[in-house]
Amino acid sequence: CFKERTRHLLREWYLQDPYPNPSKKRELAQATGLTPTQVGNWFKNRRQRDR
């Protein structure tokens, strides 16, 4: 489970761009302490949920 702060950051970025490029994923991974793969999976799952 991700911390509330991490989820908030991910949601904020998702609203700006639901399809982040690899450099954005790396930047967000550094900001949250997650791996770029975890960030990518979160975005993928969130896009699925929004369908």
Rank of each mutant, 00 (worst) to 15 (best):
R47F: 07
K25G: 03
Q48R: 15
P22D: 15
R51K: 11
T35I: 01
S23T: 07
R26P: 02
A31I: 15
Q30S: 13
G33E: 04
T37F: 09
T32Y: 02
L10D: 04
Y14R: 02
S23M: 10
F43A: 00
T37A: 13
W13S: 14
T6D: 07
V39G: 00
Q16P: 03
N45Q: 09
E12P: 00
W13V: 11
T32V: 09
R7H: 10
R49K: 10
W42N: 02
A31R: 11
T37M: 10
D50S: 09
Q30F: 10
R26T: 07
Y14M: 02
P20L: 08
F43I: 05
E27F: 09
P36R: 05
P22Q: 09
Q38A: 10
K25A: 09
N21Q: 12
K44D: 06
R46S: 11
C1K: 08
R51A: 09
Y19I: 08
Q16R: 11
W42L: 03
L34T: 05
T6E: 05
G40H: 11
P20G: 01
Q48S: 12
Y14Q: 01
W13K: 06
G33C: 03
F43W: 01
S23P: 10
L10Q: 05
R11C: 09
D50H: 05
F2Y: 12
S23N: 11
T6M: 13
P36Q: 10
K24R: 12
D50E: 10
E27V: 04
W42E: 04
T6Y: 07
H8F: 12
R7D: 15
Q48A: 09
G40Q: 10
T6W: 11
Q16H: 08
L28M: 13
P22I: 05
P22L: 15
N21M: 13
P22R: 05
P18R: 07
R11H: 07
N21A: 10
R5Y: 10
T35C: 00
K24Y: 04
L34W: 06
P36A: 10
L10A: 00
T35V: 04
Q16S: 12
D17R: 01
P20F: 04
P20C: 04
R49I: 07
F43R: 01
R46Q: 14
K44Q: 10
L28R: 03
D50I: 00
Q16C: 07
A31Q: 13
T35L: 04
A31V: 11
Q30H: 10
K25D: 04
F2Q: 11
T35Q: 03
K3A: 11
V39M: 01
R7L: 14
K44M: 10
G33I: 01
E12H: 07
E27G: 03
R51W: 02
G40E: 13
R5V: 09
R26H: 12
N41F: 02
K24C: 07
T6L: 12
L15D: 08
P18D: 04
K44W: 05
Q38F: 04
Y19K: 10
D50R: 03
H8S: 15
K25T: 12
L15Y: 11
L9A: 08
Y19V: 05
W13A: 13
G40K: 15
R46F: 06
P20S: 04
R11S: 12
L15G: 12
L10F: 04
N41E: 12
N45R: 13
P22S: 13
P20A: 02
R46Y: 06
E12N: 07
K25I: 14
T6N: 07
K3F: 12
A31N: 12
Q48K: 15
L9Y: 09
F2C: 14
N21I: 05
E4S: 09
E4R: 08
A29C: 04
Y14F: 12
K24A: 13
K3N: 11
L9P: 05
E4W: 09
K44L: 06
K3S: 15
D17S: 04
E27L: 07
G40Y: 03
K24W: 06
N45V: 05
A29I: 04
T35E: 08
K25W: 06
T32F: 00
Y14N: 01
P36F: 15
W42I: 00
R49V: 07
R11F: 05
R46C: 10
G40P: 03
Q16F: 10
L28G: 01
T32K: 01
R11W: 11
Q48N: 14
T37L: 11
